[in-house]
Design a protein around this nucleic acid. Structure first.
Lengths: 243, 243
DNA sequence: GAACGCACTTGTATTAGAGTTGTCTACAAG
DNA sequence: CTTGTAGACAACTCTAATACAAGTGCGTTC
């Protein structure tokens, strides 16, 4: 598997830039940082960056740094595209019902992600036009959720309540059969297909600070993913109601 | 049949190159490595390589190495990361079985997407390590698929066979209950949850040219979506096997 | 407010080393 | 005479590791 190092790095960086990891106008890590990250010399990293500059993807100013060269009109910090917002836009009346709200010891699979023993767990049921629409369970480190009350999470989306800025997330989407409990809440038969989405949200430093698990009735929901380029992987994602 | 050593080697290497073993711009092993592999002297290997160079198949740069002489264009941007590729990388043996192959009138929901009345429909079963893994149905306009045979689609990924470059795609992911037919093919009980992914792939001009529908057993598969920034949208997508 | 210093950045050299092809000579076998 | 092996050396490429000049941003000091 012989290949040229700086081309590998260029490819990796190209992917990140295209993925919008460094938002418009936003800066890339410095050459030194990238050099450390890739375990490559600064010269090599630089050659990779110069490739991207030739492609018009990024540009640099001496003494300042590298930045994404694209038109600077990408919506900088729009929504984390919640379903509620999309529904609100299309005129659906949505409401939340808090089912459970507890500070407790984290189960093992949560500890693996958040790496804190004590967490706040909130389980709620989202309704759309009076119909149950999603079961959402959120785990968050206890120290981050300490100032939250049951009323708070009832009224506002969770990520608005946290005081730290969120950076990114990873979603895992799968299909399950509705459990006893889920079926009752969602008004679907036991065993009917449901969409399950587990989401790990990170803060600016990349530390996972939120773990959420959404369960949707399969007959009402599906995920739509757009892959605007032939590039290996880019894609906006969204969740859409099927009528 | 005694024949000349360097011609044997040339033939062997020609086969590999033509088989795409060394991707377009990618490099061949060094003369020393090939020399060791064939138990031949470097000079002999070199003569073989020079034969291939005369044929225009490969080229070399001093101090750099031998590489496949395709156009030096951007290779990394080409692929649309299919599941097969991901599986191949992780060492899973995958194979396809063509179930149906027919030119026919497009059903209504296909016409809505491809806007052609006559289409080629291919239905196949993908296997991973001997286990059924996905049911894939592909629709493509009849004129684009005219030159394809059942053998073709059996051997190569569909999008490699089309002569037009593909630009982007839209995926719709949902959960269904396994139908009678699906259940039999996937070796799962009828009604058990399956992941369904419908994908509309477009060419460079943005016209939809491929409609595909994938059905995965829910217990084996899930989609992983990365949202590197808080921005509304961008995300690499991938399908991952759950162990 | 203006000037300065400081830390950090990119831009541009230079050195060195490992690995590669390009080329040559010498020798062995049929 | 052709084919293959073995070795040596030059030229080239890529990368690492430095060093230094020049530009930027920011806080401090005057």
């Amino acid at each position: 598997m012989r290949s040229i190092r700086y081309q590998q790095i260029a490819e990796e960086l190209r992917g990140r830039v295209l993925a919008g990891e460094f938002a418009a106008g936003r800066m890339l890590p410095s050459e030194s940082e990238l050099s450390a990250e890739f375990s490559a010399s600064r010269v090599t990293v630089r050659r990779a960056l110069e490739v991207l500059r030739d492609e018009g993807l990024v540009d640099a100013r001496q003494g300042f740094g590298w930045f994404v060269a694209g038109d600077p009109l990408r919506q900088p910090l729009g929504r984390l595209a919640t379903i509620e917002e999309q529904m609100a836009e299309s005129g659906v009346v949505s409401e939340r019902r808090i089912l459970e709200f507890a500070f407790e010891r984290a189960p093992k699979f949560v500890t693996r992600v958040l790496s804190t023993p004590q967490v706040l767990r909130v389980k709620r049921l989202n309704m759309a036009d009076g119909e149950p629409f999603a079961i959402v369970t959120v785990w968050c480190p206890a120290d981050l959720g300490q100032h939250l009350s049951r009323r708070d999470v009832e009224q506002s989306p969770f990520y608005e309540l946290l005081e730290i800025p969120l950076q990114g997330a990873t979603q895992t989407i799968g299909a399950d059969a509705a459990s006893d409990d889920d079926a009752k809440l969602l008004h679907v038969p036991v065993g009917s297909p449901v969409l399950r989405c587990e989401r790990v949200t990170s803060d600016a430093s990349g530390r996972a600070v939120l773990l959420s698990r959404h369960v949707f009735p399969g007959h009402r929901t599906e995920f739509v993913v757009d892959l605007p380029q032939a590039a290996p992987s880019i894609a906006p994602t969204g969740l859409r109601l099927i009528d």
